[in-house]
Design a protein around this nucleic acid. Structure first.
Length: 284
DNA sequence: CACCATGTTCCTTG
DNA sequence: CCAAGGAACATGGT
């Protein structure tokens, strides 16, 4: 579930559910996801700590905490990797198969589950310092982006995934943004003209905003069975249809007709990741 | 069995 | 120090 829009939706969902709650117990099932925080330190910091707020930076979730018996505040940092899920679950509910960490909040559980364990739930906040601006930051403007892009000869698609240039763009929305900008994903970053960079800049914002407005791309009925209403969000969009692929113009649409010109969408590999684009609408 | 997968970091190589 | 490419992480879906 992990690009900026999905994380934003999740944060908005979790904030009212977590604020004011105090952690009663910590169940660490996969110590790997705490790295580099040692499990003992993690447990010691979190037991008795209270959630003050939940915010987002790039694809990271920032759980603002107040330590037990003190006014000291700290940030618990979360990242979903490729397949992570975070949700509230009823205490009676059996832990999901790939539960990595379960926080006992008294009335309910806060669960971080992740089949591949690529994500994180940790006290180490350092990754956030390496992030570039949010898409809507004032420091993220076309001129600044153009200046950065001049340093690289890699394809523009690859650089959109660089979290130090702009935070939050992942493999799906990189393809989507370039389609929206009408620019070939193969163009060398340092060869883009300022007007082209401006189109990319606008497209990144537009695609992110549309995804957030749309509720998210991923099927949001994560978590175990449908039995408890605690952790469901996006119930409005629920149902069996995938408002996932419906919203995407090129991603995972190889061979399907372009929504604008009916030319078959192509898939290529760049930096070992799939890129999808329309060879007609994105000639250069 | 083969290949693919929403992400990030680390290790080379130049 | 920097840019670029590739492997690694671990599991599931098709």
């Amino acid at each position: 579930m992990p690009e900026l829009p999905e994380v934003e939706i999740l944060v908005r969902h979790l904030r009212p559910l977590l604020r004011g709650r105090t952690i009663q117990a910590v169940d660490i099932r996969r110590p790997k996801v705490l790295q580099p925080t040692p499990p003992a330190r993690f447990r010691k910091h979190l037991i008795g700590a209270r959630f003050l707020d939940v915010t987002r930076r790039g694809k990271y979730l920032l759980f603002q905490m107040r330590a037990r018996d003190s006014r000291a505040e700290f940030v618990l940092l979360g990242h979903l990797g490729m397949t992570g899920r975070m949700f509230m679950a009823a205490k009676r509910e059996p832990p999901p198969k790939h539960a990595a960490v379960i926080l006992d909040l008294g009335a309910s559980h806060f669960v971080y589950a992740d089949p591949r364990y690529f994500g994180r739930l940790t006290l180490d906040n350092s990754p956030v310092d390496r992030l570039g601006p949010e898409p809507w930051d004032e420091s993220f403007d076309a001129k600044a982006l153009a200046r950065e892009l001049k340093r690289f000869r890699q394809p523009i698609k690859v650089k959109l995934l660089d979290q130090s240039l702009v935070a939050g763009v992942g493999n799906i929305y990189a393809s989507e943004a370039l389609f929206r900008a009408g620019l070939s994903p193969r163009r060398a970053a340092h060869r883009l003209t300022l007007p082209e960079v401006a189109r990319v800049w606008r497209a990144v914002r537009a695609v992110m905003a549309a995804a957030i407005a749309g509720g998210s791309t991923m099927p949001l009925n994560f978590g175990p069975g449908k039995s408890d209403g605690l952790f469901y969000y996006g119930a409005a969009g629920g149902g069996g249809t995938n408002f996932y692929t419906e919203r995407l113009m090129v991603y995972d649409r190889r061979g399907q007709p372009c929504v604008k010109c009916r030319t078959p969408i192509r898939r290529i590999v760049q930096a070992a990741r799939s890129t999808f684009f329309c060879p007609h609408c994105q000639k250069t």
